[in-house]
Design a protein around this nucleic acid. Structure first.
Lengths: 206, 206
DNA sequence: GCGCCTTTCGTGACGATGTCACAGACGCGG
DNA sequence: CCGCGTCTGTGACATCGTCACGAAAGGCGC
């Protein structure tokens, strides 16, 4: 395999430290210093921004074989982290010291390509977030999120969690969901949403 | 010198094509394909997102020695450009084919470091934009912008231009400026703003 | 099964912001 | 000095975020 495996193998070869986290653990929070280059080997990490008011927005997620754009950015600029990363599942990761990371970048073309391509995708994620929060109406974004998070026709998420994904407020999400429900698109229950009219949702999501 | 000069020299060495733009020229627009890796050698470029409604937000600017994050991201993912880049001044730049760029990254450690550090800064710019539009009130951002753009105590910009910087709407900027004027912080004239109470502005900007 | 506590959700009121539709003001070229 | 394009001013309105509550649903201990 030429993806996660290769990158992971390179990280191990160069002396990367194996680290583990449990679901719910905070990998880093605003104000922390970047400890090194970090590669997720299994599990999923959510990276988000939080305002002092408590409002939150998810920037991107990291899956196996991926590495955190903002950690590396902080590492390179010697700035502190401004975002927060939380383990959504149990995590196995590898932490590579900055100098070893730089060496790998120089010596291993495959590693370099994989890492840069991964960052390019995360950068695109960030731009999509900006476009979304600035240019797209909430119902549209909500519809898209529901479709994306649906397992079958069920979405397991509290209104608060949905608001966090979208960078909105819980009350606003509650009202938008009520509206969808009145219009017969969904059915709302505590902690979950059932999709009733998938086609209509798709239309709203564009 | 170890900054722009070195990077620029490397780009030339590897066969980068010299290109020029006049102030106001569009370097690329949404839907374009990335033509290669591009380095600004002199002048300033503004990179922004535009909605179909005409609303705009400035993502970052490129100065001499810097390279466009989004172009490189598009290059790596083979996606089309989603943003727009406009020359704010006359520009000299160097366009390096993708393969030559990749080769340079592998062979020249100084080049690699400079480029990656530059991208790390642009990434930080993007995150700041997200934080700003989501978490900070308009008066605060406006005050910050006025201070940043002031030459002496004068800011040359139309309300429309200011709105574009902030990702807001012209009318909203007009009203915010009126309010600042009523409170004696600034004086507004056609196409420019004079700062009267710099200290108060600084306080509002935090 | 019954209280109690925590989490989740519902709702009204209000301010800030974006949008729309115009109207007025300014300045430059002819 | 007349037009016309650019820039600015303004009112009306919808959406969204915030605040301040209160109600409902689950879980837990007993």
């Amino acid at each position: 395999m030429n993806g996660p495996g290769q990158v992971s193998e390179a990280a191990r070869r160069v002396g990367g430290l194996a680290v583990r986290f449990r679901a719910g653990d905070v990998l880093y929070r605003p104000g922390d210093a970047a400890k090194g280059w970090i590669l997720v080997e299994s599990g999923r990490v959510r990276v988000s921004l939080t305002a002092d008011t408590g409002r939150e927005v998810v920037l991107y997620r990291l899956n196996a074989g991926e590495s955190c754009l903002l950690t590396t950015s902080a590492l390179m600029t010697s700035e502190m982290m401004i975002a927060e990363a939380v383990a959504e599942t149990d995590i196995e990761a590898r932490l590579v010291p900055a100098v070893a990371f730089e060496r790998l970048l120089g010596e291993d073309a495959g590693f370099r390509r994989a890492v840069l391509r991964n960052y390019a995708e995360r950068v695109a994620d960030l731009v999509v977030v900006i476009q979304d929060v600035m240019f797209h109406a909430l119902p549209q974004r909500l519809a898209r999120l529901l479709r994306a998070k649906a397992k079958g026709r069920r979405v397991e998420a509290t209104h608060q969690a949905i608001a966090g994904e979208l960078g909105s407020a819980r009350e606003v999400v509650t009202r938008a969901l009520q509206r969808f429900e009145r219009e017969g698109l969904i059915r709302v229950e505590r902690g979950q949403v059932e999709i009733v009219d998938e086609a209509a949702l798709a239309r709203i999501a564009q």
